[in-house]
């Protein structure tokens, strides 16, 4: 009886404490040994990372993580999602609790350098904008002098807001909230004159929460650059390369017309670009320390970049965002992959 109890206690403790071997430079080995890729995601941001009604994670960031898992571990289901809030995300990555941070995180110089992270390619180009009530009669951001502005705390949004108002020498009256939802709520309850967050968020908020969406206007000014990209720790270049090139492969796939549906058929393609991408011509996967079909698996699992975008945030989704800056470079956007060769 006693031995049984001790066994249970020890078992519980063993399952509670995880002593990984994720030292710098060993992340890749650790992931392979574990067989699971641990991704830090938002605790709930529609379109980017959000559990659905069945508790299954969905979103653009989630699909990025799945693509990497498919390329690296052979299956999109070999993932574990750790929901993180804005303050937790960097300690979680630094401490090794997660392998890769796919949590709508803006690339900045200090995060890339002194914070000790490497950023993979941008998966979504966002920018900060303002939403106001039309009855306020404000048409441009410069006219917001003295207006109360609802903003979420602890993000680049708050800093950008201060910078923009200082640069334009207008008086700023921010009203700060810990949770994005609270800031929205306060705005629609008329506690502030304007609401600021990333433009992607403004559109979806207006669509979902405004009593009458036509009463609200999104101002034309975008006051910041918010390139959102996955991040990994400094010091494990092999893993960094895999994350980076998986994303490039998804972009390349869109550019070459490779989709989730036709990827298997296109293995027979004679286009040298597609042959290299899908491993018909070997060499690319091996260069990354993977097998030749790494990109094929990623595309098969989540589709190409365009498909991911449409499904999660694009016109096929409740968010109904335009491609805009996130169109391929060939369509006038910023999405561009270096050659896979």
């Amino acid at each position: 009886m006693h031995k049984f109890a001790i066994a249970i206690v020890v078992g519980l403790f063993a399952s509670i404490m995880t002593i990984g071997t994720a030292n710098a430079g060993e992340t890749l080995d650790a992931i392979k040994a574990r067989g699971v890729l641990t991704c830090g995601v938002n605790t709930g941001l529609a379109g980017f990372a959000q559990p659905d009604s069945q508790g299954v994670w969905t979103g653009l960031d989630v699909d990025t993580c799945k693509a990497v898992a498919a390329a690296l571990l052979g299956g999109a289901d070999k993932t574990k999602f750790v929901p993180l809030n804005a303050q937790q995300r960097f300690p979680a990555l630094q401490s090794g609790e997660i392998d890769v941070l796919t949590r709508n995180t803006t690339v900045t110089l200090t995060r890339d350098s002194s914070a000790g992270f490497n950023f993979a390619p941008v998966t979504y180009y966002d920018g900060q904008g303002f939403m106001v009530k039309k009855s306020l009669g404000v048409n441009r951001a410069e006219e917001l002098a003295g207006a109360t502005i609802c903003v979420q705390q602890g993000t680049t949004t708050e800093l950008n807001l201060a910078d923009y108002f200082r640069a334009n020498e207008i008086e700023l009256k921010p009203l700060v909230f810990v949770e994005l939802a609270e800031a929205e709520q306060a705005f629609f309850a008329d506690r502030c004159d304007a609401y600021t967050t990333d433009a992607s968020g403004l559109a979806s908020t207006r669509a979902a929460k405004a009593g009458n969406p036509d009463d609200y206007a999104i101002l034309p000014e975008i006051i910041s650059k918010e390139p959102l990209a996955p991040a990994v720790r400094h010091g494990d270049d092999a893993f960094y390369d895999i994350v980076k090139w998986t994303i490039y492969a998804l972009i390349e796939a869109e550019e070459r017309g490779v989709t989730q549906a036709n990827v298997l058929d296109l293995k027979a393609s004679q286009d040298p670009n597609i042959m290299r991408l899908l491993g018909t011509t070997p060499g690319m996967g091996e260069a990354l320390g993977l097998d030749p079909e790494w990109a094929l698996r990623a595309i098969k699992a989540v589709g190409n970049y365009g498909e991911i975008f449409e499904r999660n945030v694009g016109t096929g989704s409740p968010l109904k965002l335009e491609r805009g800056l996130n169109a391929l470079w060939t369509d006038g956007g910023l999405i561009y992959a270096p050659p896979i060769r």
């Binding site: 399952s15 509670i16 404490m17 995880t18 990984g20 650790a30 750790v82 300690p91 630094q94 090794g96």
Partner: peptide, 19 residues
């Protein structure tokens, strides 16, 4: 417990968030 504590642990050692 969730933000500061992990930084004091040696890298790679994580204690379950729930715990």
């Amino acid at each position: 417990a969730s933000v500061m504590f992990p930084l004091f642990l040696p890298e790679g050692v994580t204690i379950n968030k729930l715990l």
